[in-house]
Design a protein around this nucleic acid. Structure first.
Lengths: 243, 243
DNA sequence: CGATGGTTTGAGTGTTTTCAAAGAACGTGG
DNA sequence: CCACGTTCTTTGAAAACACTCAAACCATCG
């Protein structure tokens, strides 16, 4: 992902209107939630910081901005009518998000941890004919990456069992974070469950089982996982139970 | 989807090398299967007919072509190592498919029924700077549609139960085929099951249950479904059991 | 008309979910 | 710095749902 070629970078302080998002709270209509992306800058990009669990934009709001994670992590999610939540993707440092085809955002975006993002004006079809350092191919590439990721996600959700799902998830995160064998999970069990189509209990049980098998280690410190046996984890992710 | 603006349309006869795809056959490596897309035409598009179950291109082969369904239906699928098959999407008349970002196709494409497709030279990033009637925005739009469809699919696979999955599927197909209340399923129960992340038995049971509830009707003629109560079907697709 | 292959139905099993409670880490205030 | 309450996580037991195996059914095709 290209991260250079920025016209203007300004780090804004933590905004004052957090309004955190709680999934277990009574579900409200996305349109009721004001987008936190207030500043409108033409042809420039700004940096902005979001606190843990702060909403970046809501499902259903007009897509006027897209963004790139600089530090931290962002979760894209959507709600079904009865309150069930599906997490579509986690975006880590370097990832673009919020590129839409339609008028409105199809997912809510929330900062999972304290996060800084680079915000770009507008997002979508009007980017294609754009020339210059950030139009065209970069957007197309980001979009294609989203597509491939969504397709892989569908494969995981449709055809894999709990152990395979969790293994695949850990492996993928380890590769993207690239911090050696110890990975710091930015997200909670609830987030992982909603991403993998499982319950928090099943996620927890799968992790415990992987630990019992000596494939990973779960230190006391919450939100950390140590990879003990990467080949075995890779096999677990693809369905080979034993070897 | 735009279907106009075609430089040259030539209908080729049924090709002579069918080599049909059987999912229950011993899984072979995709790369071993020759792509049926032999003809190479520069900047033109040709029409070509494929028989029921004939492969259009294989997962893993170099993506030199993309295509648009003219009549019939195409299924995009991928195989896991142990033979499990996931169907990513069904493409109906008008849909584009085979647009890839990387060098190789990520999915196999097969004609579900006798199908004619329009084949375009190349597919992917090199299409973006293209000007003219078929470059740029049309490809971008097709890609975006694939993305949204993949995201919806992930939501379905991750958060919905069997009855909801099957209801959603029927509803979606009815809207896309737009043939009133009677829809002719081009695909088998096996295909539906692999698309919805279920088994054929569960698909069958869900259909029977929807019929018993008076929401749909399953005529004797195989592969047909009659929608009796669309609002109820819509509710069933979104989780409301009773009303 | 009989053979074939896809579909439906049935019974039993297994994995995941649900419900419930205990356990452990983190933040706050004393 | 420790104690406490809160929240997240883990564990357990029972139930639900979808799966597996198996057989019957019935369109379609030769």
């Amino acid at each position: 992902m290209q991260s250079a070629s920025v016209i203007q970078d300004t780090v804004l302080p933590w905004p004052s209107l957090p309004r955190t998002y709680d999934p277990r709270q009574a579900p409200h209509h996305p349109r009721d939630i004001p987008s936190a992306l207030a500043p409108r800058v033409a042809n420039k990009c700004i940096m902005r910081a979001f606190k843990r669990d702060q909403q970046i934009f809501a499902e259903g709001v007009v897509a006027e901005f897209s963004a790139q994670v600089v530090t931290g992590a962002v979760r894209m999610s959507t709600l079904l009518g009865d309150g069930r939540r599906q997490i579509d993707a986690f975006h880590l440092a370097g990832d673009f998000f919020g590129i839409e085809s339609g008028r409105e955002h199809r997912f809510s975006a929330d900062a999972i941890v304290n996060t800084t993002i680079r915000i770009y004006r507008s997002s979508g079809l009007d980017w294609i004919p754009a020339d210059g350092q950030f139009g065209g191919k970069a957007v197309f590439a980001a979009l294609v990456q989203s597509l491939e990721s969504a397709q892989d996600h569908a494969l995981l959700l449709g055809k894999k069992c709990a152990r395979e799902k969790v293994s695949t998830f850990i492996l993928n995160l380890a590769e993207r974070l690239a911090t050696g064998n110890t990975i710091e999970l930015p997200m909670s069990r609830m987030d992982i469950a909603d991403y993998l189509g499982l319950t928090i209990e099943t996620v927890s049980r799968s992790l415990t089982q992987l630990q019992r098998d000596g494939i990973i280690d779960l230190p006391c410190r919450r939100g950390a996982i140590v990879l003990k046996n990467r080949p075995a984890l890779r096999r677990a992710a693809n369905g080979n139970q034993g070897f």
